[in-house]
Simulated scan of single mutants.
Amino acid sequence: MFRIVYYQPCIPPNTGNAIRIAANTGCELHLIEPLGFTMTDTQVKRAGLDYHEMANVTVHPDLETAWTVLAPERVFAFTAHATRFYTDVDYRPGDVLLFGPEPTGLPDEVLSDTHITDQLRIPMLPDRRSMNLANATSVALYEAWRQNGFDGAV
């Protein structure tokens, strides 16, 4: 399945929602520290409901440690500044979908990391900064999963 990576997430409910997304799709969720909250934060727990035990969540101290663990073949960084749409990719199981924190997005040093295969964007109307992180994750992840026949779904 696919692997979701949140680089230094700050908003607890978005990570809680990502836990639900991961549990419902069979994806791994990887969080890169520092986090803007603790995993025991009430808002993370509330947004994740009872899905915490069903999700595969790993917290990494930094991005390099995550790359070592993930050993990714392909990493797609999502940024509002990309020229290619998220639908322009033929996704494969094992792909990493990398998202940055709200409200700043991925910093330049992450976007220029040698592990990044491509930068992708989700289209929006002009003069809009970004989508909600969990919503953007859902949009991209469900496209990748759709392309792969919703493997494992009922």
Rank of each mutant, 00 (worst) to 15 (best):
Y7T: 12
E28W: 03
I21V: 15
T38K: 03
G16D: 05
C27Q: 04
E28C: 02
R46L: 07
I32H: 11
R20H: 15
E33N: 14
G36M: 06
Q43R: 15
I32P: 15
G26T: 12
P9H: 07
T38D: 12
I21H: 09
N24Y: 08
R46A: 11
I11C: 04
L49H: 05
P13Q: 04
I19A: 00
N24W: 10
I32Y: 08
Q8D: 06
L49T: 14
P12Y: 05
P9T: 13
I21Q: 08
T42L: 01
P34M: 11
D50E: 11
L49M: 14
V44D: 00
Q43C: 00
Y51D: 11
I19G: 01
A22C: 10
G26M: 13
E33R: 12
V44Y: 00
F37Y: 03
I19M: 04
F37S: 01
C27W: 06
T38Y: 01
N24E: 09
E28D: 13
Y51L: 07
L49A: 11
F37C: 04
L35V: 15
M39E: 11
R46E: 02
Q8Y: 03
T25D: 12
C10L: 06
K45L: 12
Y51P: 00
M39R: 14
T15F: 01
L49F: 05
D50A: 14
A22L: 06
A47Q: 03
Y7N: 13
D50H: 13
G36N: 10
G26Y: 09
D50V: 10
G36P: 07
G36Q: 09
A22W: 06
G26D: 14
P12H: 08
T40C: 04
P34F: 13
C10M: 02
Y7M: 03
D50T: 13
E33D: 14
F37K: 00
I32W: 05
P13I: 02
G16P: 02
A47I: 02
I11Y: 04
L31G: 12
Y7G: 02
L35Q: 11
P12L: 03
H30I: 08
C27M: 15
T15N: 05
N17Y: 05
D41R: 01
C27Y: 05
A18G: 14
N14I: 06
E28A: 13
L49D: 03
T40G: 12
P13L: 04
T38N: 09
A22V: 03
C10I: 01
G26S: 14
Q8W: 02
P13R: 10
E28S: 14
L29M: 07
A47K: 03
R46Q: 10
G16L: 00
L35R: 13
R20D: 08
I21C: 12
I32D: 09
I32E: 06
I21S: 06
Y51F: 14
A23C: 08
Y7C: 07
N14F: 04
C10T: 08
F37Q: 00
Q8R: 15
N14Q: 10
